[in-house]
Every structure is written in C-alpha cells, then in structure tokens.
Amino acid sequence: MSTSMPALDTGLHKTRRQYKWWRRSIRNILLGFYALVTLYPLFWMFMSAFKSNADFFANPFSLPQTWNWSNFVRAWEVSGMGKATMNSLFVTFVSLVLTLFFGALTAYIISRFEFRGRGILYSLLLLGLLIPIHSTLVPLFSMMNMMGIFDTHAALILPYTAFELPIAVFIITAYLANIPKEMEEAALVDGAGYTGIFLRLILPITLPALSTVAILGFLRFWNDFAFALVFINDPSLKTLPLSLSVFADGFTTDYSLTMAALSMASLPTIIVYLMFQEQVMKGMAAGSVKG
C-alpha cells in the first residue's frame, strides 16, 4: 500500500509499521521459546543417550564430550530390545492388516448397503469410543484366561483391532460418502460380485483414508502400554514399551543406558511423524474428536 504512494509514507505510517514489526517479533520470540521448551526434553533424551554416565552427571545440559555409541549397543542387549522389537513389529503389523481390511469392509457395507440395523450398528460403533479403555482391563484379563489366549500375541492383536475398528470405520465411511457410486454400479452391471468390487475398486479408491487409518493404528499399537502390561507375562512376548518399563524401576542408576533405550524405541514413530506430519496431526485430531 505504502509503496504505491510513497508520498504518503508519513510518520504515522512509520510508527504503524514499526508497531506491526514489534508485535510480530514478540510473537515469534514467544512461539520460538515455547517450541524450545516443548522439544527440550526430547533433545535432552537424545543427547544424554550419547554420554557416559560421568558426563551425564557432570554436564547435564551440554552436548556430549565424546559421542558414545556403545550405550545403544548395551541397551539393545540388556533390555532384550531385539526380541521386543520383533514382537512389536509382528503385533503392530498383524493388527494393522486386520484393522484396515475389516475396517474398510465394514465401512463399505455401512455406506453402500441398506439393511436392517445399519443405523444401530454405526451408532453402537461410535458409542464404543466413549468407553474408557482402562475399564476393560480387568474383564478382558479374565475373559482371555477363559478363552485361553492370555499371554499370547493374540491377546494384543484382537483387542487392538477391536478398539481401532470404530475410528477406522468412521474415517473410511466419511471418505466414501464423498465418492460417487457410479463406478461400482457400472461394475455391478458388468457382472462383478460384491467381493470383487470391494477388493478391486473400494480398497484402491479409499487408499488416502486407509493410509490415515494405518498411520494412526501404527502409532497406537506401537506405543500401547496398558494392554501389553496386563495381557502379557512371558518375557519373550514383551513388546517394546513393556520391555522399556523395566528401566522405570530396574536400571535406574544407569541413566545414559536408559536414555539410549528410550531413544531407539522412539525413533520409528518420530520418523513416521516427520514423514507424514500433516496426516498424523489431522488424523489424530479427528480421531480424538471421535474418541
């Protein structure tokens, strides 16, 4: 505005611009400070993971004097993280496949077919999101004992999938609502069965929604602690968060070792987050609105 009319760039304009500049600077300094405070605990964790214990005690705030990779090797061995990582990978992967497949199938049927009890089914699914997960620990524990799946991978995979289904169905149904049905109807006329339509049309079309569900599911399954704590006893079946929890009471004096273990366990989710930031943020916000 002032560039087009330089003659009008009077003192009044200058003070207004100065005022604006000051306000923006103060805002950015405040925001930068907040970001720093937020990130510092994580930065501290990664830095401490490279320190020797002596260095950690002497200089808690500074960068490591020497970058020690041996903490990571030791942490990996001491807490059995190799085994735990395999367990986490397996449980997360199977739960994800089940959640995606059955979530998409249910969403497809709910959004494209008229049948009795459809509305009830959908509301019942959404209502389930209000049930506090921790209130199911005790009954699920007893039920799993009776079903004979306590202390197996199934004891995690089945409840993970069941509790993630509502969010999956909700996200995929919302996505399908904006997709025209013409293609499916044309395929039906061409003689394709519903199963074929689901596998060859619906799954590829809903890929964006499926990827959101997959990212949310990955974070939830990979990070879950409560279910693993109650449903898993056998040390060889422990998932990562559970194997880390030994550091909360076991090895508390070996701080840099603990920090190395925490860093390694957090790296996968942080990488996924950095790669899919927008999707993670939007998906988790939407997921928590309905959860």
């Binding site: 990130l39 605990p41 974070l219 929890s245 909360a248 996924v272 943020m281």
Partner: peptide, 24 residues
Amino acid sequence: FQRFVRASVFMPMVLSSVVIGIIW
C-alpha cells in the same frame, strides 16, 4: 516457522507414554 512450532507442539503425541513417563 509457524509450521515448525506447530509440529514441535504436536511431537510428544507420537511417543510412547513409557518414554514420556521415564523422561519426566
């Protein structure tokens, strides 16, 4: 810069509560 701040504020959401509990 604002997107960076927003991403930082969100960051703890992707960590396991065990990690957060031990750090704190």
